[in-house]
Write a protein that binds this DNA or RNA. Structure first.
Lengths: 324, 324
DNA sequence: TTGTATGCGTTATCAG
DNA sequence: CTGATAACGCATACAA
């Protein structure tokens, strides 16, 4: 509420002197300084960020676009990015794209209107045009937005390979995998391709179910897993994202199918939710804190006008459990 | 990048005319308007939000404080608040308080420095002093911050009663409930008190386990539930938040305890995650979209200087499943 | 050592 | 119908 002028008036000095006293920039007599500090304290004065940001033409805010905050992977990513931004003195503005069409475009417009300084996007849109020619700091996670926008993603190919090797070692011959929509151009599709390659090389048969675009609610997973476990009752291995894998495990328990003896299950992502249950799910874990750190580091470099690496790959690891 | 002056120069007019043409405020000759529109299009001009906000002394941003985005209840709340704010033309700045001490104070300071226009807080701090004397729009969820700050919460007492009635109807005699830290002053403690009252009135015995403050990760729930199900092996009913209830269900399946025949389980919250499994969890659902709507409505009213209701209670409902 | 003028981009006001 | 100018709050450069 109180402005610098009111503080100046109360201390009986000019506004510039107050600024210097409070910021420690330039000369201020000790006696004057004390009067100013007292006045500022009495009025509970805090300098407004607005004119400062306005002059620098910056906001200290980074927008984060995710399809759905409720999805545990994106919740974890969002949380880690927020914490990482905070460490760098930045704030996080969020944007859910799911359920509201055109939401991402609105967000991009806000970037143009100086509501924020940059965007980190983890959403999967079908069109990428909106980011073209936009000459602003943008970092993409798991989403190829062309050669001008830095891309950060997990080593999904390795993830697919690790899963396949594990299932082959367990002598699986007939496995089922669920994957996101292949219409979307995302590096995460590599995990399915690599999984198929390694499994078939090992003499196994792979059935791949393509999921619908941007469907990630629990109900959808449940229906889909139940449906395909019914269609393919004699698979001996399943590879799917953690949520699907958890439901698969639940289904097996109910049907009296022994895991891993009769059915091997491997998840993907490594979200905390899987810790909720025993037996513990075997999964390929993405290093979300590292993904977040890389995203934010890259964003900071873009803001500083530094050169950035256009494609950064983050390692994945096998998180051993009791289901494979 | 382009400013209004550059557009004006290109169109051969003054800055004010450009403003009027683009905003449709005031008179501009059709011919002039067309020239201006063309210039704006060529330069991809978007007016900056910064000076507008600066003059109005507003930002269009609301801060949302939650303990942990990864917790499914808060993820759902956050998502719904964000969507609701968007409908009202506002943006959501997020703040995780867990894991970083003093984080909430930083956020409050940002409010004072005009980084945002108000705060919606769902975090449970042990001290509320920071919000006192802060003469700014603040709305609290499930958290009593004193008589000057509007409080929105579910009808937790009803929730506790519904759960108790259901367990009594199922002839439970010896039940276990898990509750948040009672040191925190939150209306959500009412559900435990009411649960005890009704159960004991019905002749049952209730054991109440108090959880640690701000502990809400899956691992903690898992350890705690396992521990107390071990200590009290012959309870015939459990009432706890959804996450705990899900693990309880999982534990029962593994131990061969039949649900609900031998053990009745009722969750609390109604997060989507519970839809993942069958048998479906019986739970007391909070109406998160309504909580979000009320929070945002109240925030809008505060910003408009309207009178607001200081305590708003949102109905809860029994979401029938197969575990009670 | 201090006060004052300047500029940041936009819109509203007012004189032309 | 249009152009010039003030105003918003702060930091900074410069004059006193």
């Amino acid at each position: 509420m109180a402005s610098i002028k009111e503080v100046a008036k109360r201390a009986g000095v000019g506004a510039g002197t107050v600024s210097r006293a409070l910021n420690g920039s330039g000369y201020v007599a000790d006696e004057t300084k004390e009067r100013i500090l007292a006045a500022a304290r009495e009025l509970d004065y805090r300098s407004s960020e607005q004119p400062k940001n306005f002059i620098r033409n910056l906001t200290g805010i980074i927008g984060i676009v995710v399809p759905d905050i409720e999805n545990p992977f994106f919740a974890k990513l969002l949380k880690n990015i927020e914490i990482e931004l905070y460490k760098n003195g930045y704030k996080a503005l969020i944007c859910n794209t799911i359920e509201i069409s055109n939401r991402e475009q609105d967000f991009i417009d806000m970037l143009k209107q100086h509501v924020m300084d940059g965007i980190i996007t983890g959403a999967q849109s079908l069109t990428n045009d909106a980011y073209m020619n936009l000459n602003k700091p943008v970092v993409a996670i798991d989403r190829d937005l062309g050669p001008t926008i830095p891309l950060i993603h997990s080593d999904h190919a390795k993830g697919g390979r690790l899963a396949a090797e594990l299932l082959l070692k367990a002598s699986c011959k007939n496995v089922l995998q669920f994957g996101g929509s292949f219409r979307v151009q995302t590096p995460s599709n590599d995990r399915h391709l690599e999984f198929i390659r390694v499994m078939e090389e090992g003499g196994a048969t792979v059935k791949t179910v393509e999921m619908e675009w941007n469907m990630m609610d629990y109900d959808y997973y449940r229906r889909l897993i139940a449906q395909y476990m019914d269609i393919y009752p004699n698979v001996d291995g399943v590879f799917t994202s953690d949520i699907g894998a958890m439901y698969c495990l639940n289904l097996a328990m109910r049907k009296g199918i022994r895991v891993p003896e009769e059915l091997h299950i491997i998840g993907y992502d490594g979200v905390d939710m899987i810790r909720m249950f025993t037996p513990e799910l075997t999964t390929i874990a993405q290093d979300v804190p590292m993904l977040a750190r890389r995203c934010v580091r890259t964003m900071m470099d873009l803001l500083d006008g530094k050169e950035v690496v256009m494609e950064q790959v983050v390692d994945v690891s096998l998180q051993s459990g009791d289901t494979a």
